[in-house]
Amino acid sequence: MPDPVLSITGLKAHYGDFQALYGIDLSLMQGEVLAIIGANGAGKTTLLRSISGMMHNGPGQITYRNQDIGGMRADQVAKTGIALVPEGRQLFPSLSVEENLIIGGQIGRKGSWNLGSVYKLFPILKERRALPSTSLSGGQQQMAAIGRALMANPELILFDEISLGLAPIIIKDIYDALPGIIGKGMSAVIVEQDISKALSVSASVYCLQEGRVSLKGASDTVSREDISRAYFGIE
């Protein structure tokens, strides 16, 4: 079996005195799509923040392509080829739509994603490119946030709450676009509230509960009962 691109062992994370993650183990293969589900406050965002370098973790806890990235700053992690589509989109309000995309590509990694290919994926962004990012609808903002992450030509892309707060028709658009994004050999971690959506796009699924992995399995074989048990922690 080949080595995983991302392997997390015994990951702990704290906000001050509060411990949010209690020893997470996780591994991700090249080209694999992994879904993470779990109730609010389970630690999903904290996990993605840890991987992307927005939170610092102990040495040896996060390994990406044989590099220990647990203690790296976010800009250093970005250069290794990991991009995050953050929860709540978090576009830069002072920047136009196009500037948001350009700044995503600023780390200068080579690859097939550029303004042209992002606009081809999401034509509406091209139409709106000169407008402030604040003028976009929620769904368009999510497209811009995805485009911004793609502009870095990542090898691993992390989506936090990809469909949260969006209308069902927009969610469908975004999920329809996903194969075009991830199909190119990219690996992905998707945090998603909608469990059936999460299972349908992923090969494997992890459920977090109060900072621990409460379930891991293959997305096509895991049972609904196991999921609800892992999700809510009830027997």
């Binding site: 370098g53 700053r73 976010a74 800009d75 970005a78 920047l95």
Partner: peptide, 23 residues
Amino acid sequence: TALGRAFRAVSDNQDIAQLMGLI
């Protein structure tokens, strides 16, 4: 300019700007 864009991005959201490779 790219510098001005970086100024505005960092001013908007330091953490996300860092994620874009801006130190």
